[in-house]
Design a protein around this nucleic acid. Structure first.
Length: 346
DNA sequence: GACTCGTGGCC
DNA sequence: TGGCCAAGAGT
C-alpha cells in the first residue's frame, strides 16, 4: 500500500492545505476520495500496534467494558489497569456491585480521582438491576440514561461492547481530527457541532469496520498523535496529515490550566482519602481540627497531622474551607454523618 | 457556556 | 520546577 500525499478535508470548513477537489463528506456523492485509504491504513496500524488491554479482550464482558469506560474518564490507562482488575474480580456483574453499599465502591475506587464516578458507577449498576435485568443495556439511548454516562461513554460502550456503529468522539479522536483534517495543533476547548458532524462524515459505513475505526483513531491519539510530543515518525498517516503539511503550526489558543493548590477539590480529595483509609468512621472534630496535611510530602501524601488548622500552611481560611468541603461531600453522597463522626456511605 | 470535580506523571 | 494533561459528566 503506497502512501498517498494528499490531505483530507471532508468537512466544509476553511482549508488552507491542498486537498482533492471534492464535495463535502456529508453530501449525496459519497465519501471524499482517500477516506477509505485512511480507514484501511489506520485500522491496519491498529491491528499491528494496539496495546494489549484487558477490556479489549474478546472475552471481556459488556460490564467489564462499561466499568473501564467509566474509570478511563479523565484518567490514564496505566492507573486504571490495577483498579479495574480488582473491581471486576470483586464485582463480576452489575448485581454484585449493586448489592454493596455505595461506600464500598468509593473505597475500592482507590486513588483514581473524581470519586463521584464510583458513586455513579454504583448507581448505574443498580439501574441495570432495576431496569435492565441486571445487564448492561445495548443501545446508545439506554446507556445515556444511566448515571455517569454521557455522549462519549454511551457511544463507546454501544460500539465496543455491542458492535454498534456509533460516532465515538473523545479527546484523542478530536485531536487526531484537528491535526489530520483541520491542520490545527489542538481542537477547540469544547466539542463543537461542526466537529461532531465531521466525525460522523469520517465514519466507515460498515458497522464492524466502524468499531475498529473508533478504537484505532482513539489509540492513535493516545500513543502517537499525543497532545504534547506527538511521535509523527510512527504515524501511519503522516503523509496525509494537514497539520504536518502546514508545518506543524503552534496551537492558536492557550489552555487555561487547572488550579489545584488550595482549592476545594484538594481539600475534598484529602478528606475522602482519610475516610477511605479509615476502617470506620472518623470523628468530625478530628477531621476538622486535625486537618490532613495537604502540602507536606507532595501530592500523594495524605496523613492526619495532629495540630491546629495552621497545619494547612498556605491555604486561606482553612476552617471555612474544610467545613465547606465536608458539606459538599455530604451533599454529594460521598460521605455520611453518623453518631460517631463521618464515614463513607454505608 | 462556564464551572466544578481528583490524581499523579511527565516534559 | 510546575504547568499541562489524561477514553468526561453534571450543573
Amino acid at each position: 500500500m503506497t502512501a498517498r500525499s494528499t490531505t483530507m478535508n471532508p468537512g466544509s470548513g476553511s482549508a488552507t492545505a491542498p486537498r482533492p477537489a471534492a464535495g463535502g463528506a456529508g453530501d449525496a456523492h459519497g465519501p471524499p476520495p482517500g477516506l477509505e485509504a485512511l480507514h484501511t491504513r489506520i485500522t491496519e496500524w491498529f491491528s499491528d500496534e494496539a496495546r494489549d488491554l484487558p477490556w479489549r479482550d474478546p472475552g471481556c464482558t459488556p460490564w467489564g467494558i462499561f466499568v473501564s469506560e467509566i474509570m478511563l474518564q479523565q484518567t490514564p490507562v496505566v492507573r486504571v489497569l490495577p483498579v479495574w482488575r480488582d473491581w471486576l474480580q470483586r464485582w463480576p456483574t452489575p448485581a454484585d456491585l449493586a448489592a454493596e453499599p455505595s461506600g464500598a465502591a468509593v473505597r475500592h475506587w482507590g486513588r483514581l480521582g473524581y470519586p463521584r464516578r464510583a458513586l455513579r458507577l454504583h448507581a448505574a449498576a443498580s439501574a441495570m438491576v432495576a431496569g435492565h435485568d441486571g445487564e448492561v443495556p445495548t443501545t446508545h439511548d439506554e446507556l445515556l440514561a444511566l448515571p455517569g454516562v454521557g455522549a462519549y461513554t454511551a457511544a463507546a460502550v454501544a460500539a465496543f461492547a455491542f458492535g454498534r456503529r456509533e460516532t465515538v468522539v473523545d479527546t484523542n479522536i478530536r485531536r487526531v481530527h484537528a491535526r489530520l483534517v483541520d491542520g490545527k495543533a489542538l481542537p477547540a476547548p469544547a466539542l463543537t457541532a461542526a466537529e461532531m458532524k465531521r466525525a460522523v462524515a469520517l465514519m466507515p459505513g460498515d458497522a464492524g469496520l466502524s468499531v475498529r475505526w473508533n478504537a484505532a483513531v482513539m489509540e492513535l491519539g493516545a500513543v502517537v498523535c499525543t497532545a504534547r510530543a506527538p511521535r509523527c515518525v510512527a504515524c501511519p498517516v503522516l503523509d496525509a496529515c494537514a497539520w504536518v503539511a502546514a508545518g506543524r503550526p503552534a496551537p492558536d489558543h492557550v489552555p487555561k490550566g487547572q488550579a489545584w493548590a488550595g482549592t476545594d477539590r484538594q481539600v475534598r480529595g484529602a478528606i475522602v482519602a482519610v475516610l477511605r483509609d479509615a476502617e470506620d468512621e472518623v470523628p468530625r472534630s478530628v477531621l476538622l481540627d486535625a486537618p490532613v496535611d495537604l502540602l507536606q510530602g507532595g501530592p500523594s501524601t495524605v496523613a492526619l497531622t495532629p495540630g491546629p488548622l495552621a497545619a494547612l500552611h498556605g491555604l486561606q481560611a482553612p476552617a471555612e474551607q474544610l467545613e465547606r468541603a465536608l458539606t459538599g461531600l455530604l451533599a454529594d453522597g460521598l460521605a455520611e454523618e453518623s453518631e460517631g463522626g463521618v464515614r463513607l456511605p454505608g
